[in-house]
Design a protein around this nucleic acid. Structure first.
Length: 427
RNA sequence: GGAGGGAUGGCAGAGUGGUAAUGCAGCGGAUUGCUAAUCCGUCUACCCGAUAGGGUAGCGGGGGUUCGAGUCCCCCUCCCUCCGCCA
């Protein structure tokens, strides 16, 4: 959500930001709605003030035993008009909010200008593509050959875009998540959280999925929503609160299932488990002082990168262009891991600085030391990492000629001991 | 599913129809010769105003009654307790 006062004072900067997002100028319409709102408010307040004065006189007169019928009739006559004005004020406020709440965040300075992901800019790479003396397979070929990645049974149970892992692949998935959580909590000072994965409307509103992206979410009959990412519960932890400045930054991590309808993704990534309706992810969320969100964004990205480095996976860091930026983000780094079976880089983490955009929606503030009043916190979120996609990356990067998978060194302690290789498949 | 009790400022907590007590925290100021005490003011959001200042709203949300609602009535949401069911 944007600050209407800022828009009022910086209309050209606001429109410039929207333009970089590929959107038409918005400020004129918003400023008009704001003017209408303030006009309606002032109008209503003048009459309310009058009413209050007269009502107080009635109270005074009555307590002194004087007759007040004349004033009572006068105030009574104001009533209908007052109702109309108050209704007008409510309407004007609702109109402005409705216009504001569907507008995306403005890109930060320095975010590359572009229409879509083709304009994303590579910042750096880490590691190297592995060399094979055979033709590397895709993850689903490997997993199915091992007999531990079963799309047919999953489809029988749940339909398309689901997978059933079993045996050592199921265990590998668990090991990956454990390794990530232990690293983020033990070394990077994130507090582990086990949050609800069903949330109310206002939580999804706070992070920006509602009202605009309702069709991407799963909703229960009771009106609860399955989270599309743990960003939703974690970022909403400080919603509605005023926290002390010395409690910042707050860092949370959680390993949860995520649920996405993939409504707009028909036909994309249909083979394998790259794009599923349900997947596990270890999420990172930071709540920071406004002056620190930039540094925190770099730090968070580095934490996610460290996981890939320790797993020995080659990846590149992209900064998203203005056209590829998510709704709530002002700046996003994507980590793209190399998949030798696919011969492609694929997103495995997305780290975003949302500034005060989400904080304003969820009313999350802090009290600055030495100042009066409150300010909005800044919120950041990043995957640290997507567990399913990490499994894919390990399969494709650590595959061997015989179809077996070498377990990366750092994961072996989590595999239960003595399991350094998964497979090879039995014919 | 059944029954009951609740929701008041950053926090705690009074308030049964007439300007939202009080305490703590925060902020501003005064004062005192020492890490502090005391006193005064302020305290959320918005509107008007160049400033000084003025005003409105805010007691979970929305309606209603009333000249006037935190207070009375209706609807809704959420929280808690007990019972039932249940991992």
């Amino acid at each position: 959500m944007h600050d209407i006062r800022w828009i009022r004072e910086n209309p050209e900067a606001f429109d410039e930001g929207m333009k970089r997002r590929g959107m038409a100028p918005q400020s004129a319409e918003l400023i008009m709605l704001d003017a209408r709102r303030r006009e309606a408010q002032t109008e209503a307040q003048v009459l309310q003030s009058e009413r209050n004065t007269l009502s107080r006189e009635i109270g005074k007169a009555k307590s002194q035993g004087h007759d007040a019928t004349e004033i009572v009739t006068r105030v009574g006559e104001m009533k209908a008009r007052l109702g109309v004005l108050e209704e007008g004020q409510r309407k004007a406020e609702a109109d402005l909010t409705a216009a504001l709440e569907t507008l995306p965040n403005l890109p930060s300075d320095g975010v590359p200008l572009g229409e879509d992901e083709d304009a994303n800019v590579e910042l750096r790479q880490s590691g190297e593509k592995p060399c094979f003396d055979f033709e590397p397979k895709q993850h689903f070929e490997l997993g199915e050959a091992l007999g531990e990645m079963d799309f047919e049974t999953a489809a029988k149970l749940s339909g398309a875009r689901f997978v059933l892992l079993s045996g050592l692949l199921a265990r590998l998935e668990r090991a990956i998540a454990q390794f990530m959580l232990n690293t983020h909590t033990g070394e990077f000072a994130y507090t582990e959280v086990s949050p609800p994965v069903l949330v109310r409307d206002h939580a999804l509103y706070g992070t920006g999925q509602l009202p605009k992206f309702e069709e991407d979410q799963y909703c229960t009959e009771e009106g609860m929503w399955l989270i599309p990412t743990a960003e939703v519960p974690l970022t909403n932890i400080p919603a509605g609160m005023v926290i002390d400045e010395d409690c910042l930054p707050r860092r949370y991590t959680a390993h949860t299932l995520c649920f996405r309808s993939e409504a707009g993704a028909a036909g994309r990534d249909t083979r394998g488990m790259l794009r599923q309706h349900q997947f596990a992810k270890v999420e990172l969320v930071s709540i920071t002082h406004p002056d620190q969100s930039g540094d925190e964004h770099e730090r968070m990205t580095a934490c996610a990168e460290e996981i890939l480095k320790r797993l020995g996976l080659h990846y590149r860091v992209m900064v998203l262009s203005t056209g590829d930026l998510g709704f709530g983000a002002r700046k996003t780094y994507d980590l793209e891991v190399w998949l030798p079976g696919q011969q492609a880089y694929r997103e495995i983490s997305s780290c975003s600085n949302c500034g005060d955009f989400q904080a304003r929606r969820m009313n999350a503030r802090f009290r600055p030391v030495g100042e009066k009043g409150t300010r909005y916190v800044h919120t950041l979120n990043g995957s640290g990492l997507a567990v399913g996609r990490t499994l894919i990356a390990i399969l494709e990067n650590y595959q061997r000629r015989d179809g077996s998978i070498l377990v990366p060194e750092v994961l072996r302690p989590y595999m239960g001991g003595g399991i350094d290789v998964i497979g090879p498949p039995v014919p």
